[in-house]
Design a binder for these strands. Structure first.
Length: 678
DNA sequence: ACTTTATGCGTTTTT
DNA sequence: CGCATAAAGT
């Protein structure tokens, strides 16, 4: 028996070894939230609870993996039986098993954001008289998603948008939404939101399934509870209703996903929803030095809705106070960051001990360029996911088509890889083939070949050959070869036609990586089953799930604050603390100033030893414009004695007043462009 | 009629 | 960069 009292502080111990019944753990940043949760799992397993009757829900794949890894150290192989994962992936798992009650096949497709927008765009094109006068697909997709996540009607959300975006007709948008639902049905597909919506429907509408699952899950544990939306809170409430063993862990101060439907009220009301709920507060912070916590406490001192919480430092002070750097522009900011990085390295920190955390992706561009020029290795979580990139999706559609002759979306994508085949052509081919294409049948391959135009025809025999032998490869568990053949015999050519040399090389490398990852995936069956399992849920994988082998090299981390949630580094840099950027102007417009504040709280509490905050005096736009920017309100609020101020104004703005532009820049943005590689 | 190529423009945050 | 739109090419 483990002596938990030796491993945990009193608060953590109470939570981890609590008796049955509802429990809310209010864990402020850095107070050992994950540790508590992991030990709770270990405690339950030691008490004889069968691991497969424990459900552990998280928000991100990374959190799920960390939880599994750490629990594994305590309970060993039992960890593999625990039901743990993101809300989305657990719902997907349940729906694959029991979704037939709702009319879904176990192999339903999961649409990623791009697929979703594409479908909505197609519907707009075909059903709206004048698409130019109609809201764009991105807006419609957002409205539909918002409605799903809040559990309200599309027309309701659309009319709410009316106030800020002109010319929206709620009825018309509702009509699009209905067609979108029908189209998904036709394809046997669910988008991300459907996973949650249908996961909940499963519990509400299918009495048998609900009762079985309620009986099955003895313990329901939810991480980051402050970020649950209506659907997720209801989902866990129902699952735990029978045994009443629900453990919600969270921190209302760290609620940063309201834009995605998170309801901070879920955690605030938790005690009243669950009668007899015990509350444990964790306020002892083991992560950060006192100087950093002082700032965190200042940031949240006037927070409106909250459980009273005050971070108590358990570490001694080391180094100096957190540092505020006033710099001239984005480039100077980048070189200043790099200078401090070098300084910290020479005093013994590794690159992997440091992170640059920013409000939005584009704010990292100058930093990336500066680091690249200086040859400092860094790891970045870019705006576009690895599994959402064009070339990866191309390969995935090729693989999907081999496995599923009726996969319309994959077919469309696949045939459009050939020159001279566009949207209309692809549609014609699909209907001429009778809405199916069985790659393993010679006739189907010949028919398709005859449908190609003159430009595509020469390429077909080689690809046809690939398709012919693909099944053989799959039976021999040679998934990698399936991809390799296709790339060698056709796709590499295609890439080189579409992109310049360097880009094509990069993309080929990504594909090799993908092949390796599929081959390495765990599975019970042979190549076919392995591939099937991978393809089914690949939409749920994110950047952080790929390139795991990357972690052994020493690299500086560049990440958005959202993606950095739950993580920690000895040294943290926060660029662009300027009004309009952080807090973001857009958030202010939409009355979400308090969320920006919580976001700042989150980033401050990521730092263990050193915190460096940067505020440029000007920002430049892509068209060469130059504008003065004010220091962020978050910096202004910090009492001067809590920080050390440094000014680095190599090139003060006031010396060249002639350079300012007249028109203000668009809302955010210091420079333009995106990076795909990471 | 449909596809390819050229050009301009907007960019929060994510499962 | 990717997307939408317009113009040019098949």
């Amino acid at each position: 028996m483990t002596d938990f009292s030796k491993l945990l502080n009193p608060g953590q111990l109470t939570a981890a070894t609590a008796s049955d019944g509802p429990l809310l753990v209010l864990a402020a940043a850095g107070t050992g939230k994950t540790r508590t949760l992991v030990h709770r799992v270990a405690y339950l397993v030691e008490q004889g609870v069968s691991p497969d009757r424990i459900l552990l829900l998280t928000f991100t794949n990374r959190a799920a993996r960390e939880m599994r890894d750490r629990a594994g150290l305590l309970v060993g192989d039992a960890v593999h039986s625990i039901w743990s994962g993101t809300f989305h992936s657990i719902c997907a798992r349940l729906l694959r098993r029991y979704g037939s009650s709702l009319g879904y096949s176990p192999s339903f497709l999961i649409l990623d954001e791009e697929d979703q927008k594409k479908l909505i765009g197609d519907i707009i094109k075909s059903s709206v008289a004048d698409p130019k006068e109609f809201p764009k697909k991105d807006i419609i997709a957002k409205i539909i998603s918002e409605a799903a996540n809040e559990g309200v009607s599309v027309a309701f959300v659309a009319s709410r948008w009316l106030t800020k975006t002109a010319q929206i007709d709620p009825e018309a948008i509702d009509a699009i939404a209905k067609k979108y639902v029908a189209r998904k049905q036709e394809l046997g597909a669910m988008d991300f939101d459907d996973l949650l919506v249908n996961g909940l429907r499963l519990l509400k509408e299918c009495d048998g399934v609900r009762e079985m699952l309620q009986e099955h899950f003895l313990h329901v544990l939810v991480d980051e509870y402050q970020d649950t939306n209506t659907l997720q809170a209801e989902f866990t409430d129902i699952l735990a209703a029978k045994h009443r063993n629900i453990l919600a862990v969270g921190d209302d101060f760290q609620c940063i996903y309201t834009w995605r439907g998170a309801r901070i009220e879920n955690i605030l009301d938790f005690p009243s929803r669950w009668s007899g709920c015990r509350i444990v507060k964790l306020e002892e912070n083991y992560r950060s030095v006192p100087g950093i916590l002082d700032i965190a406490n200042v940031v949240m001192k006037d927070a409106p809705k909250q459980f009273e919480k005050h971070l108590k430092a358990r570490r001694d002070a080391i180094g100096g106070k957190p540092c505020v750097h006033r710099v001239y522009d984005s480039r100077e900011q980048a070189s200043e960051i790099m200078r401090v990085v070098a300084e910290m390295r020479s005093s013994g920190y590794h690159l992997s001990d440091m992170a640059v955390l920013y409000r939005s992706h584009f704010q990292s561009i100058d930093i990336q360029m500066t680091l690249a020029r200086a040859g400092v290795p860094f790891r970045i979580t870019s705006g576009v996911g690895v599994f959402e990139q064009i070339h990866v999706k191309d390969i995935l559609s090729y693989l999907r088509l081999i496995l599923n002759p009726r996969d319309e979306l994959s077919f469309m994508r696949f045939v459009r890889l050939f020159p001279g085949v566009g949207e209309k052509g692809a549609e014609k081919m699909w209907s001429k083939l009778g809405s199916m294409f069985d790659a393993s049948r010679r006739e189907d391959r010949e028919t398709l070949g005859s449908l190609f135009g003159a430009k595509a025809k020469p390429y077909w025999p080689a690809v046809s050959k690939c398709l012919e032998i693909a099944n053989e490869h799959l039976d021999n568990d040679e998934v990698g070869d399936v991809i390799e053949d296709f790339v060698d015999l056709y796709y590499e050519d295609h890439l080189r036609r579409e992109w310049d040399e360097k880009d094509a090389e990069d993309r080929l490398e990504d594909i090799a990586e993908l092949a390796g990852q599929i081959a390495a995936a765990e599975s019970t069956g042979g190549g076919r089953q392995k591939l099937e399992a991978f393809l089914q849920d690949v939409a749920l994988l994110t950047n952080l799930d790929a390139k795991r082998n990357d972690t052994n090299t020493d690299k500086l981390t560049l990440s958005t604050i959202h993606q950095a949630k739950g993580m920690e580094w000895p040294v943290v840099f926060v660029p662009w603390l300027s009004e309009g950027l952080f807090p973001s102007a857009k958030a202010a417009e939409e009355n979400r100033a308090d969320e920006e504040r919580r976001l700042f709280y989150v980033v401050v509490t990521r730092a263990k030893d050193f915190l460096h905050l940067y505020s440029p005096t000007i920002r430049k736009t892509s068209d060469g414009g130059m504008f003065p920017v004010e220091e962020s309100i978050f910096l202004k609020e910090i009492p001067p004695q809590l920080v050390e101020k440094r000014r680095n104004l190599f090139n003060p703005a006031y010396q060249s007043t002639g350079g300012f532009s007249r028109t203000p820049p668009f809302r955010g943005g210091a420079s333009s462009g995106w990076t795909r590689r990471w």
